[in-house]
Design a binder for these strands. Structure first.
Lengths: 201, 201
DNA sequence: GACCGGGGATGACAAATGTCATCGCGAACA
DNA sequence: TGTTCGCGATGACATTTGTCATCCCCGGTC
């Protein structure tokens, strides 16, 4: 039996996926979690063979969780499951040690297939997505530019961001200007959007 | 047997939910759809007792679909399923003739329960969400303010919006200013965000 | 007929944002 | 040892955005 841990914040989706997986006669869901923290503690107890991690979770996200899980349980393979097939997500997931990267758009039966293939030592990645991730290149934003852009994402004013990040307003403007240039945007709203679309935040 | 139509764009979630529902011995999924248009055509063929509609779908969204479905098949009850429990969504869903409003956060077994209760003539709504929707009041934005705010949501410049909506730049600024005031925001980014959070767009 | 309210517009003004040049500091690096 | 790069800052400047008063037109409605 393949022992699976399932981390997904939406209860209805989590329950449905668990049911789906438990119907497979070689798969058994041995733990469920609604966020990254929970996934780590549950994993330490249940010792799964594969952890299925959603990226978009409150608190600790799936990619961060993947990295910590790989460190804590090196034998446990990680399958990343996400709503958005963003190039930066894929890149970061691979760097965090994931063995597979699935988007929720794909048909349901691919989930069990991917789990089996991962356990056989394979890596499972949508070829089109892999190509997109490679052609998009790495994140061009410096860490600080990322911080500033992320802090601006909620509509905060430059003054707000400066206070929150303990920077001068001029500095914030400079970083934003650089981010806008690097994302080929016309203002920070567009910059935030392209950065998010690429998975750079 | 309760005949259910399932409309949800994410293949993996749709498949899992279908499996979950088919396990119930009084429920049968008689049709699946990945968007609103498809849901309508499938419904005309499969004549479901209940249609389960996701709001966030590409093309025709779940609420619009609900209204058209109620017109085409008056005997078919509508259950709205959504990721976001936004007050405006609930309000619009009810106005579109929905019998139930579920958020995907809630546990999986609530889905089957809700379907049975809806078929028994009940309405199923999370009380906390209902209270939020009532206390939030109706959408304060005029139709045109809504248009302009929605057109600004993607980071377009005022000039862009003016061109797209065939308005003068000054007019766009005026509408945006009004929308900012009504949403108690400090700039249009915040205005867009609160409007989206309330389900006003 | 008078009186709204919404849509659309103009002009003026203040405030916020974006751009650029320039500086200092420190760490990495060839 | 000099060079490069990221971080942080300042000042000046042009542009964009947000606010406000004021106007016109039109379709209700009292």
């Amino acid at each position: 039996m393949i022992r699976v841990l399932l981390a997904e914040d939406q209860g209805m989706v989590r329950g449905a996926l668990a049911t789906l997986l438990n119907l497979e006669d070689d798969i058994e869901v041995v733990g469920e979690a609604a966020n990254g923290e929970e996934a780590l503690t549950v994993a330490r107890d249940s010792r799964p063979d594969v952890a299925l991690l959603d990226i978009e979770m409150p608190g600790k996200d799936g990619i961060t969780t993947a990295a910590e899980l790989r460190a804590a349980l090196p034998d446990c393979r990680v399958v990343i499951l996400t709503t958005f097939g963003r190039p930066g997500y894929l890149r970061r997931a691979m760097e965090a040690g994931a063995s597979a990267f699935l988007v929720k758009d794909s048909p349901a039966q691919e989930l069990a297939t991917a789990i089996r293939r991962v356990l056989a030592g394979e890596r499972v990645i949508d070829p089109a997505l892999a190509a997109a991730a490679l052609s998009a290149g790495p994140n061009p934003l410096s860490p600080r530019e990322r911080d500033v852009l992320a802090a601006s994402a909620d509509g905060s004013t430059i003054g707000d961001v400066a206070t929150r990040l303990r920077l001068s307003e001029g500095t914030v403007r400079n970083y934003l200007s650089a981010a806008i240039r690097k994302t080929a945007a016309r203002n920070r709203i567009e910059a935030v959007q392209t950065a998010q679309r690429q998975g750079w935040l």
